[in-house]
Design a protein around this nucleic acid. Structure first.
Lengths: 226, 226, 226, 226
DNA sequence: TATGAATGAGTTTTCATTCAT
DNA sequence: AATGAATGAAAACTCATTCAT
């Protein structure tokens, strides 16, 4: 029953060639998570290969199981991180200090830019929907985080309504949906869209035009006497 | 999902009433395609199992290969059919006879209703985007079909502009994107959305509200002096 | 996942070198089951290797999963078969026609000989007890089969009591336990016994002596005025 | 199971009241051995997991290897301890001072009670037989210890024969086998027996009955003119 | 045309053991 | 003496596809 015991690699006491510490659990976890984000995003949960992820990592397949338990556990960790990132940025937005219309403009712009830049996030959300969100639903922090955005939008609308600028019959989550859908779709569905109409809707040529478009559309929709 | 697929009649494995053929190739193919549509839609390309599809079929795995060559071949056939269905309906819309604003309203409503009812279609498009549209791109009829929609929208806009109703700086494909994204997103991302905010954005309670919302938003956006 | 084809024992159109038919599911299953019986018996459930079983088989590992689903499923099938064998033989014993004392002698002798010859059975039962019988408990036929033995012993005792030969305060299952324990133990624990006392209690030299011993002990125990 | 293992006190990982050592090697070893006894007994050698043992211990996996060298070394230590316990007790029995029949009664009773109470011992012996006793055979003290029991029984029989009470054709090891088999079997095979006949043969309801039964049967068997 | 049986290559996961601190 | 991190080898299991009848 004895196994691999032939040659001890025995590295120098604390650092490797590039100066990375050899025993650095946080670094190891982060490294695995980064690669896994790319692979799951590129291939989907079923399509991704644990071997492929491990191969691109600085460590071995075994560590992946050591830290994340299973392929699905790793996928969950990836999802949680990626959702955490966008929610964290949203909270830094400081919209409360701006004029309502300006704040809405800012929020739409942020949402647009984030999706435009973070295609991995868009893909992972898409993938998670294929799985009926059953993995993200297990996350404990997920719902708590999302309630913050709703609050942000609620405040924003309320201030606009109070100022006589915004209509008062719009549900904050619906508004969020309208903004997100455009920002998400032009990235997430860019391939079929590109195949259908011969141009990438998320390409650089359309970016500025689309950004302006969604800001314009949403503001017109929200304005009191549009 | 196909039009006439409400209740897939069993492929006969023995003679029927009188003199009819023992096997019906067309029926067998249709049966396989129906089941495959459900499975690929539910599980994705990598996640779907050939065995699972064959099991639910009235025939055997061998026939699946006989008619469609491979798992991927079957997936392509499913995609082509499902895209064909929506484009065919779009062409029956007869928007040219309506007042431009009315026609746009009609077109948005149709797009909304189609996505709302055909979740399999939405899922399959999503899945195909995970695969960077590489399967649908091989379809010969796909691009041709799509150009028709563009033409429809172009005409619609042109008539509205001519009538002084619509602004003249909107690209037809962009407009299509704006409409589609909302209709698509509330169905395609309903699971993560539901997990995040505790309500299904594609559920019956939101349907009428959302339909009105997207019609309203797009019309405001298009109106000349919004 | 269709399994064991009830009818259609496969027409013998092509045969292999040794005359074994190439497409013979029953033969394939039996072959796997035979090898698995040996391996599980020799190594235990955890210790047995699916690869090792498959290797010794005329077919591949894949078929093992095709027919038995999992390592545990195969183990269950082995257990069920091996228990079925002894119970089937017990039922052929025709004890009802014998004089009660003669019948008891016959039953003890059979039990002794069966355990003495079928060491695989003894080992598998031992192994199953390590697993707290959780696999055999899932067998549907197991309990039904065992009730037959009880009935046999009950009848046997009753007839002996009626004839004034046997004491009337002995529980049939207890009697069975007394008989089985000796027959089982000298085979099942022969290794530790051999290590402790330097001789194999199930070896050929002890066989006749032990057989006589257990027959003698049980008959003395059962006799009315022992 | 060891004598003084009712409530394993935690191995201190920090200083205690005053001046006591920070680590207690003997305590650590005992703790590991206790847990290992439970795990090997419950799962078998192949089925037990080093990680699981270490987890339940007050120390870490490394210590397990430090003190016992390997999984197999730990298993051997467990076996040796457990066999040592029963043999030590047997020697305390003081049968030489009793009337032969009384002494035999006492010996059977002791054997019965010991097996009835020490299920871990029974299981470990069972497990060791699955491994053909290859681990216990390496024990140096094992055989020496066992020869004592044989001597005890030999004396006991000889005194009974001399007193005209016992038959003179019974081998002491065979007698020991007869006694042990019943006591062992009703505990070791209780699970399959319970599954087969719907009652636990080692349960409290059967205990007194079984104890009397084996004493009765053996004494009848040994009596000169049974 | 139809079908259950069969397969090889790959995929996830497990495990006893050792290393660096 | 103690510990969390790390590992290589092997184990169980899966899957799209083809074969023989």
């Amino acid at each position: 029953m004895k196994k691999g015991s032939k040659a001890a690699p025995a590295a120098p006491s604390s650092t490797t060639a590039e100066g990375r510490r050899k025993y650095d659990p946080e670094e190891t976890k982060r490294n695995i998570l980064d690669i896994a984000t790319q692979e799951f995003s590129a291939m989907g949960l079923a399509g991704a290969r644990v071997d492929a992820i491990a191969e691109r990592t600085n460590t071995t397949k075994r560590m992946l199981y050591y830290y994340f338990g299973s392929k699905e556990g790793l996928y969950e960790a990836v999802l949680e991180q990626v959702y955490g990132d966008i929610r964290a940025l949203e909270q830094e937005l400081q919209l409360a200090e701006m004029d309502p219309e300006e704040a809405l403009r800012e929020f739409i712009g942020f949402t647009f830019d984030y999706h435009d830049k973070h295609r991995d996030f868009v893909r992972l959300v898409t993938i998670e929907n294929i799985h009926a969100a059953k993995y993200i639903e297990q996350s404990k922090t997920f719902k708590a985080r999302n309630s913050t955005v709703v609050k942000t939008i609620e405040d924003l609308i309320a201030r606009g309504v109070a100022a006589g600028k915004f209509r008062d019959d719009v549900d904050p989550i619906d508004l969020h949906l309208m903004i997100s859908s455009f920002c998400f779709h032009r990235v997430g569905n860019r391939h079929t869209w590109g195949a259908a109409f011969g141009r990438d809707p998320s390409g650089p040529r359309a970016r500025a035009r689309h950004r302006e478009m969604i800001v314009d559309a949403v503001l017109r929709y929200m304005r009191r006497d549009g």
